[in-house]
Design a binder for these strands. Structure first.
Lengths: 274, 274
DNA sequence: CGGGACGTTGACTCAAATCAATAACCGTGG
DNA sequence: CCACGGTTATTGATTTGAGTCAACGTCCCG
């Protein structure tokens, strides 16, 4: 019933004012920006590569690529946020991760030629797109850029592993804590505040990512704030005690062994405290 | 008793005579073999690239790279099997995946220069190693090889996502089923039988990968075989009803809604039957 | 032959899934 | 502007599957 949401704001969208797809208005500017985005050293910006970088704008809910679609380009997030997910045969939507500024999208498709996952924008977003053939040619033409791409991919791989890090925890509150810390870290990398940020995804998306029921996400948010680690107002999150939350997030197993001490901060309420 | 069977038919074997680390005995042969391993088209084998490919042998339990170690090379599994895992601060060992023949190892290190995870051999194994500087130079020298590398990486990314596929299921039996199906598929890709295979990893490793207690893995094996989907003897697995198991594995949620029908095959025992 | 890792099985407890109902939120249109 | 439907978020009551503890059988290596 709610899946439909994702289907509605399809591609064509933009009623014609702003171009959703720009064929590199100023090619040089786009290339420079893309290189900066990928963390290129300043000296690499001297020799501007002859790349045909284009960019796309996507409204909240718009799909960058569908699961199963043939791959045509690799994307780099320039602004906004995306969720990456797979839809199982039974309709269950498994969120694999969230992509923020500077991250790669659509790379997985290289292996089989089609996208194994979908990517939709969670808010007004834009991406740089590199056509696949361009991408293949990069290596020979620009060794440095190739290295940058590899770094981005390496990052993508690591980030996919973060999902495991989250799921490894047994307690739902710990899962949520780890997720928030991951977000916090990445927000910091984007130059944003690691303490205070806005969640761009719904509770359902978070729940899917964490591997728990969405009600449990709500309860866990409640628990974490009751614990005193953070403050939540709808999608607005403020981490009050970063070290404390970090320490709490270490508890992989249900163990209550070593964190009664941490709980000293908020002694009254414990796990399932009435 | 039967594990040995699979360990025996190893390549050269030789306990201490053969070097564990060979600096490319016959460089050309090694390069050719590596390219084949990566699925290079035959015509690509004509122009043999000037790569210094070395190979390593590892005994069961030997570590290919430790978590936190500085990265020196990228590896490709030539024979055997590896488990990739991270050790949390609290000592909990989270298995991120298993690498089989033809897969990349150690690539994640590119981003930060150090390995974010460990890799240890689960049996007598060997890998091809590409020093990092060699690897960087690949792009310019061999566009085709570069493409192969990208495909391997794309695969690695997809495979890391399979962990999520497994964890997405709520019922432990379904998780195990999905894991076994993943293995089955990959065995087939390696040219092995998808119906009958030998688990190279311990129940603990499986448990960690599935995100459940190791006792639960035992129980789930019991359940699946009682259901009639497969037959288990220690680490020997035979899938009796592949389509049935596949259908069973679809049940992401605890839902009993639609698979009473499937249960018709083995009506006596159901979830918590008896 | 004995010690230690591995694997299985049972009993008990509890955290999370599930079902259900209510409350805040948002864009839409009257 | 506010009233409306749909979606999203919270909270409660109930049930149960899986974690945990523990004991036992098995296999493997020295």
């Amino acid at each position: 019933m709610n899946h439909i949401v994702h289907l509605l704001p399809e591609r064509p969208r933009g009623p014609a004012r702003l171009p959703n797809v720009g064929a590199a208005v100023d090619p040089r500017a786009a290339v420079v920006e893309l290189l900066c985005l990928m963390g290129a050293p300043t000296d690499a910006l001297q020799a501007l590569p002859p790349l045909s970088v284009s960019w796309h704008r996507l409204h909240a809910g718009a799909t960058l690529h569908h699961e199963g679609a043939v791959a045509e380009a690799i994307h780099f997030v320039r602004a906004g946020a995306f969720k990456i997910f797979r839809t199982a045969e039974d309709g269950y939507e498994q969120v694999l991760g969230f992509a923020l500024r500077g991250e790669v999208l659509g790379f997985e498709a290289l292996a089989h030629g089609t996208h194994p996952s979908s990517a939709v924008a969670l808010e007004e977003s834009s991406v740089y797109s590199l056509p696949l053939d361009e991408f293949d040619a990069i290596g020979q033409r620009l060794p440095q850029l190739n290295r940058l791409v590899h770094r981005a991919l390496s990052n993508a791989l690591t980030r996919r592993g973060e999902l495991a890090e989250v799921m490894a925890a047994v307690a739902a509150e710990v899962r949520l804590a780890r997720f928030l810390l991951q977000l916090s870290r990445r927000m910091a990398e984007c130059g944003q505040s690691p303490r205070r940020f806005h969640l761009r995804m719904s509770r359902r998306d978070i729940a899917s990512y964490l591997g728990v029921a969405h009600e449990t996400v709500s309860r866990s948010f409640g628990a974490l704030s009751r614990w005193g680690w953070l403050h939540v107002d709808n999608r607005e999150v403020e981490i009050l005690d970063l070290p404390g939350l970090t320490h709490f997030a270490l508890n992989t197993r249900r163990a209550v062994d070593d964190w009664p001490q941490a709980q000293g901060t908020q002694p009254e309420l414990r796990l399932r405290a009435s």
